[in-house]
Nucleic acid binder design. Structure first.
Lengths: 342, 342
DNA sequence: AATTAACACACAAACGTTTGCGTATATATT
DNA sequence: AATATATACGCAAACGTTTGTGTGTTAATT
């Protein structure tokens, strides 16, 4: 029953050396002679030795493991950023575990606890919509586990951040609507508990003011998770209005797509009756007809940048830098939902 | 500076009890008196004790960690199945780490090695396209780490499997095309190294034969990763043919969408000139115009089933069952790309 | 020839838990 | 009163590494 696998101790006994020699030989420590090193490696291979990282992690006080906490992995923005995180983490010798909060505060707290217990070397998180109390992240600071917040960050928390300028992006989007002639610009806002949706709302308002348009509260729809259903609901409400908006800035692509679909069903034409702008440049935005004007927010690159920043924090001991904030570029991508193809 | 966190040993010293008592008290072991138990818990809380799972894992020889290996997390099918896996794993007290192979054999091997080293309690994997040699999974069998393959499985490997009947699904799809009157049915096939794409090709052929249609090799396009680019390339080749197909079954939604887009650009109409069927019922399939007829393969449920199966294998010691295979239902969803809305 | 330095390895403690076993006191059983 | 049982806790080994220090041998330096 060679049931239990060979360990360093086992190898040492077989070869008549000490476990410390085995350990050093396997990682090419210079103090081990050429000959014994080779002999050890050879038999390790032959006997199918597999290093036990759990033991190693305990001893080294390092796990080479970074935890990622996101609201929902099946949303394109998040799976893309995870993909970016995973790529640079792996490159640097870290592996990645995923926690999905489904925007629940409790699940977020639990995730952080598990990651602390498991001695993750660092954490990258995108806040749940429900989250406003951030003690769980503050507790993290005591444990010296570096944290990077991305996309949905928290201003009350001093931590590393990677985000885009949502205000600016929203401003560009709405300014574009104004410039193409929209006078009554509506907005589907996300959960204002979240930094990004608050900023997008403010960017929206600022752009209207800058273009001498009045802000009409009836034209602002306050959403939550911005699902397809929410989008449809708002779109229907919008098309039921007496004086209808002639442009709309949606805080994500999902709701923007719902608006376009609803418009089609109700025989309104986009962009003639209403121009629509989304947010995130998800794959669907290119495909839908009319194709969707939207903000490219570079999710993959945000993920990469977050991972790079985190790993720097993990590996550098520069205690002078308390925290760092990275702003990622964003672009307005103009498509047919605001400017019809000629 | 209180830099190093409090441990059980520390708590024990402070409270004047043994570490074993602390350990047992914290997990409500019956042999610890009410009074001491409460006292221990109280001070543990007060001093911000965080259990060290790494140490616990080492001692218990269990990590409560399951590894997931998928080709690309930013593809909807995979992020959905991960979401399903994550949900049931968390429910059962496991956390999930993700490895992305990008369809590379080497990355898959490395991922398995990392998971073995890290003593994952189990692994759920969807094979990379490149993978044909599966020694790395066979090695896993020696370590007694349970494995569940899902979607893209390997017939040479005796292991737990969760998949759909791709042959049957493809048959249904192509039979549908035949029944609506298509005589020249084409197929965009995936990498035939992969079980699912081979099965879909065979289902395609079988359906043609069953409908007394001849199999024309010119109508079969052999793809690889089935990206948008591949789809466009094949679509253009298809529309350049003298006698064009009047129906096409695409091995995934991405290429199906490309066909529809290309058709639109080149002024062919779907489904009148060519009917098209995709595979996976990704969100985009509902949105595109015409909406896409496709196979619903229940990615989320596949993930759930995989996780449940794996956890059963981890926790049950029923050594009678060597392996188990679950077939998940699938349905043909008929939309406008084969049957125009009246 | 004496001192240094380099080399090659072994010893043993440590990382922070868990757990089988042992023991002392208190209560119940005959 | 003697034995058995339950209760409440401590001892110490173990999980499999890593690493600081120690030691004996050989080669280099003066």
């Amino acid at each position: 029953m060679g049931n239990t696998r060979i360990t360093m101790k086992g190898l040492a006994k077989i070869l008549g050396v000490s476990t410390s020699t085995v350990s050093r030989a396997l990682k090419d420590h210079h103090s081990i002679g050429e000959e014994t090193r080779e002999k050890i490696k050879k038999t390790a291979l032959k006997l199918g030795y597999i290093p036990n990282s759990v033991a190693s992690n305990l001893r080294r006080r390092k796990t080479n493991h970074i935890g990622v906490i996101v609201p929902r992995i099946d949303r394109y923005f998040h799976s893309s950023s995870i993909s970016g995180i995973e790529e640079v983490a792996n490159e640097a010798g870290y592996y990645v575990s995923i926690f999905q909060t489904k925007d629940s505060y409790i699940k977020e707290v639990e995730s952080v606890e598990i990651l602390m217990s498991n001695k993750a070397d660092g954490i990258i998180a995108c806040l749940a919509l429900e989250t406003s109390d951030i003690d769980h992240y503050k507790q993290l600071a005591n444990t010296k586990i570096p944290l990077v917040l991305f996309d949905r960050v928290c201003n009350d928390l001093e931590s590393n951040k990677v985000l885009i300028n949502d205000y600016d992006a929203a401003f560009k989007a709405c300014d574009h609507l104004a410039k193409i002639g929209c006078k009554r610009i509506a907005h589907i806002a996300g959960n204002l508990n979240s930094s990004i949706f608050k900023a997008r709302l403010e960017g929206y308002k600022a752009a209207l003011i800058a273009n001498n348009l009045t802000i009409n509260e009836d034209f602002i729809f306050y959403g939550n998770i911005l699902s397809e259903e929410e989008g449809r609901h708002f779109a229907n409400a919008l098309f039921d209005m007496n004086t209808k908006p002639d442009g709309i800035f949606c805080a994500n692509d999902i709701t923007a797509v719902s608006v376009i679909q609803t418009a089609r069903e109700r025989k309104f034409s986009v962009p003639q009756d209403i121009a629509v702008v989304g947010f995130s440049n998800t794959p669907i935005s290119k495909i839908i007809q009319p194709s969707l004007t939207t903000i490219e927010d570079h999710a993959f690159e945000m993920g990469q940048a977050s991972a790079r920043l985190l790993i720097k924090q993990i590996e550098d001991n520069d205690q002078n830098i308390v925290s760092e904030t990275l702003i990622i570029r964003n672009e307005l991508i103009i498509r047919e939902s605001t400017v019809p193809a000629e």
